[in-house]
């Protein structure tokens, strides 16, 4: 490793210990031998993966390799696709989320999702953020107000909208809309946030803001993000998973993936030499 060249030996040992310790922590998400089909087409070909709490994991890979399909397994959003079939186990906090008894609505309160295209509801900014609480049957107005405010503050949108909370969410700019969507997800206080190319429809400044935000959110949440932007993956993620044709080719610390990948396919992809 590069680090060992520059740092005294004992520091390296300490560093390794910390990494070891974090490895021993129970995984937030544990995937074992998962396969997915759409009708006869196999989109995911037997994947194992463990995602640790309070980390950012980036999913990269060429278009159509199954990143979104795999991500949407974690909050069971694929259930709405009629042709979807799945095999294998996914455990979140040691609970198999594909067991019959699982309450999907409860699961989604734990596992929030931000989509590629900002999709605020055609309702006011306030109602957008309060929606998740409303559907849980929470009526306490003061509580809702505080949660809306704190969520909007977390995404650094509060100062921009605090005087216009009754304005339509659709009247915001694209970047603001996406931050509103993140705030809406945070208001439910999930422990995992899934993001499917959350910045691909945004300009560089909005993108930078969201990346900063992800860095902040890591302290409280486990984040899994799909991205086509290699710089973004290397900037914000701790771990990176490279997918190709429905298979997980390589999964490692982001640093390793980007400096010293063990598979040639990974290297070709991240250096842009992919055929």
């Amino acid at each position: 490793m590069e680090i060992s060249m520059e740092k005294p030996i004992d520091e390296v040992i300490v560093l390794d210990n910390i990494i070891d310790l974090s490895l021993k922590k129970t995984p937030k998400i544990a995937v074992s031998n998962v396969k997915v089909w759409y009708d006869d087409f196999q989109a995911i070909k037997g994947i194992d993966m463990e995602i640790k709490p309070n980390t950012v994991t980036a999913f990269i890979g060429p278009s159509g390799c199954g990143k979104s399909t795999f991500l949407r397994l974690f909050n069971r959003m694929n259930d709405y696709v009629d042709s979807f079939k799945m095999e294998g186990k996914i455990k979140i906090d040691s609970k198999n989320i594909y067991k019959k008894k699982i309450n999907v609505e409860e699961l989604r309160k734990e596992v929030g999702m931000v989509f590629q295209k900002p999709n605020p509801f055609p309702k006011s900014i306030f109602e957008n953020v309060a929606y998740g609480l409303k559907i849980q049957g929470i009526k306490d107005k003061k509580f809702i107000k505080e949660r809306v405010e704190s969520s909007l503050k977390q995404v650094a949108l509060w100062n921009e909208v605090k005087d216009n909370l009754n304005k339509s969410g659709l009247a915001l700019s694209g970047g603001q809309q996406q931050r509103l969507c993140i705030a809406r997800t945070l208001a439910v206080e999930p422990s995992i946030i899934l993001m499917d190319e959350p910045t691909s429809a945004l300009d560089p400044i909005s993108t930078a803001k969201i990346e900063e935000l992800i860095f902040e959110l890591k302290k409280k949440y486990t984040i899994v993000i799909v991205t086509h932007n290699m710089q973004q993956a290397s900037r914000i993620s701790d771990y990176t998973a490279f997918f190709y044709l429905g298979a997980l080719i390589e999964f490692d610390k982001t640093k390793t993936i980007f400096t010293n990948p063990s598979k040639e396919q990974t290297e070709n992809y991240i250096t842009g030499r992919f055929g």
Binding site: G132, I135, Q136
Partner: peptide, 22 residues
């Protein structure tokens, strides 16, 4: 738009809540 339904479901809304509120 299906993106509205997706957003509602992803926040933990049931089918009926999604139909009624969105």
């Amino acid at each position: 738009p299906s993106s509205i339904k997706d957003a509602s479901y992803a926040l933990g809304a049931s089918k009926w809540q999604t139909i009624w509120y969105q």
